[in-house]
Structures are given as C-alpha cells and as structure tokens.
C-alpha cells in the first residue's frame, strides 16, 4: 500500500467522489467507482505488477503509462481485478508504433479502440461473445473498454476539444470490447490467424469507426453473404474514406453455419472481399463528391478496401438467430493498423 504514489483525496462518500471527479473532467460522464487504495492494490496484485511498473510509453507525448494509473482508472471504470491482464494487453497493443495512438485518438475522424479478445481468459472473466455482442450485457466487456477510455482521458489527455479533436466520435468511445465465440465457431480464431499460439489468450485492437449493421437472410450462397458485407465496405469507401486498411467483419452464427456448410473458411471470406471490395474514383460522383473525381490519377483510378486479404479481421460473434452482420471500418486507411497482443497472466 505504501508504494502508491498518486495524490490522495479524503472525501465524504461516493457522491462526493463522483462530484469531484466529474468536475475535474476525470470521467466519461458516467458515474465511477471510487478508486480506493485497497481496490487499486487488488488490481495491481491481480496483474502481478508494482505500482511504478511502466506498461508502455506513448511516443508523441513521451509519457509513461504506469501500472498504478492503469489500475486506478480500471477501478473507476468498474473493472474486477481479474480483468487487469486484458486492460494491460490493450495498452501495450495501442502503444505499438503501427497503431498510431496519437493520430487515431486526436483526429477529427473520431475513432474508438475496437477490442477483440480470444483465448481461455474470455470464459474465466465472463466476456460476452453472443447475444447483443456489440452492446450492453457483460461487466467484463463494458468495463474493459471503458477502462481504456478513462486511461486515454486521464493519463494521455484525450479530452474532447483538447487532444481529442473528434468532430462526432461514436458510441463505441464509451466502450467497444467483444470476445470471439470460439466454442461455437468452425473457424480458426482471429488471434491464431494473427500468429498467436492456440491455447494462449490475446487481444486484437484496431482504431475503428462505428459499426455498420448489415442483413441478408435470403440466401445460402456464401458468395452472396460475403457480397453483402463487401457492398457495405464499398459504400463506406465512398461516403467516408477510400483508403485501404483493416476492416473488421462480425459474422453471427446463422450466417457462419451457411458459409461453413459450403466449405468456406475465414480465408475464403477474406479472399472474396479482397477481390470484391473495390471502387473506382468516378463512383465518388454518385455520393456527392464530384469535386474530387478528377484529382489524383483521375476518374478511372481504382481503389481496394484491403491491401491484402489478411487486412480483413473476421470475427465469429453475435446471437444465434438472425442474418445480421457488421463491418467495423478503419479510422483512416492504414494510418493505424490493427495490433494483436498476447495477454500475460501472472
């Protein structure tokens, strides 16, 4: 306990704590759990870390992110100590140079950190991968994503109007964390596709825009199912950003069963969308962007959504009924790239 270095405030009760923390801009607007010494120490113990341990250094600010500050913000977000290894792994992933943490959090484009968890830790901490997967349900999903937001605000100064310049942002900036439904999926889990050994737990983090929901319940043909996703990606390329980067694809059970019955693996979906999610510059004229059709290499210039099929992050998740799916578009092409980080448990 004596090793904790943060300033301490003695406050009357939970209401007084919330009043002060809201007033000082230390929250996301929702109530927080008071970060007492005892709760913070429990989180540090669960992670097996000393308070002064540096998890990562954010390169633009040259600012170290210590275990103590991570634990304080995790408690505020409502995290149980068992969530700490996931939160730590997300921080490490975001501080990899290819993630471009400063650019993706400061940009007017307003992305959030989309987190996908794989491996045995999902079940140990109760992460949801099924019903309502992109929204409210489990404490673990809600609080892990929220902890990352509070760390960005309080440790890295990503305060709206200051170092967070989002014009709009999106609801995922409150929390945006899912698990993959590995037990009910016929396919290789995302983390293993991205070189994490089977049996290990990992997070994959990308700077994502808000999810776009799709629906196709009128076919059994995997090509047609994939084509609905590809069409939504093409649409995003025209109305939002044309640059190639990581797109995430959320595929629910009802569609997985049809795709798998046709013998398709994740890589077949990736290959199809890699070939199909392409537009030409002149298509911009159809969405009110005539002014920029003749710039660059001219109206016939071709653009693909993915630099390679591997750029597509295919995730098995969602409730058992319904032909719905979602794409999560990248913040700005490949200016931020998805990072997969192994979760270390002490």
């Amino acid at each position: 306990m004596t090793q904790l270095r943060s300033p301490i405030y003695d406050l009357a009760d939970i209401v007084a704590v919330n009043d002060m923390y809201h007033r000082r801009g230390w929250t996301d607007g929702l109530p927080i759990l008071p970060p007492t010494e005892e709760l913070v120490q429990d989180c540090l113990d669960a992670a097996g870390l000393a308070p002064s341990a540096v998890i990562s250094v954010e390169s633009v600010r040259q600012r170290p992110i210590t275990a103590e500050k991570v634990a304080i913000n995790a408690v505020m977000a409502g995290c149980l100590p068992a969530y700490m290894p996931v939160v730590i792994a997300v921080i490490k992933a975001m501080c990899q140079p290819e993630f471009n943490l400063h650019g993706s959090t400061a940009s007017t484009g307003g992305s959030a950190q989309f987190i996908v968890v794989n491996g045995p830790i999902r079940q140990r901490i109760g992460l949801n991968a099924t019903h309502n997967v992109l929204a409210n349900h489990s404490r673990a999903n809600a609080c892990i994503g929220r902890a990352i937001r509070l760390i960005l605000i309080n440790v890295l100064g990503c305060v709206p109007g200051q170092l967070d310049r989002s014009t709009l942002g999106h609801p995922g900036k409150f929390t945006f964390c899912i698990a993959e439904d590995e037990e009910d999926s016929p396919w290789t889990p995302l983390a293993q596709q991205r070189s994490i050994p089977a049996g290990a737990s990992a997070v994959t983090v990308m700077a994502g825009e808000s999810p776009h929901q799709t629906m196709n319940e009128w076919t059994r043909d995997p090509k047609e199912i994939a084509e609905t996703f590809a069409a939504e990606i093409r649409h995003n390329m025209l109305t939002y950003s044309i640059w190639a980067g990581n797109y995430a694809l959320i595929v629910p059970k009802q569609l997985r069963e049809l795709i798998a019955a046709a013998g398709w693996q994740k890589h077949d979906i990736q290959e199809h969308i890699y070939r199909s999610a392409r537009v030409v510059r002149r298509d911009w004229a159809t969405v009110g962007k005539q002014q920029i059709v003749n710039l660059g290499k001219g109206a016939d210039q071709r653009f693909g959504a993915l630099h390679s099929p591997d750029d597509l992050l295919v995730v098995a998740a969602g409730g058992p009924a319904g032909g719905f799916g979602a794409i999560v578009p990248p913040w700005l092409g490949s200016r931020s790239q998805a990072v997969t980080q192994i979760i270390e448990t002490p």
Binding site: R61, G157, V159, G161, Q162, L163, R165
Partner: peptide, 13 residues
C-alpha cells in the same frame, strides 16, 4: 478551432 489542442500538446510536452 485547434487552439485548445495546440495548448494541450504544448502542456504535455
């Protein structure tokens, strides 16, 4: 419109 952001960056530096 970017003045608060510039000030924040100067502060963290």
């Amino acid at each position: 419109r970017f003045v608060p952001t510039a000030k924040a960056m100067a502060t963290v530096q």
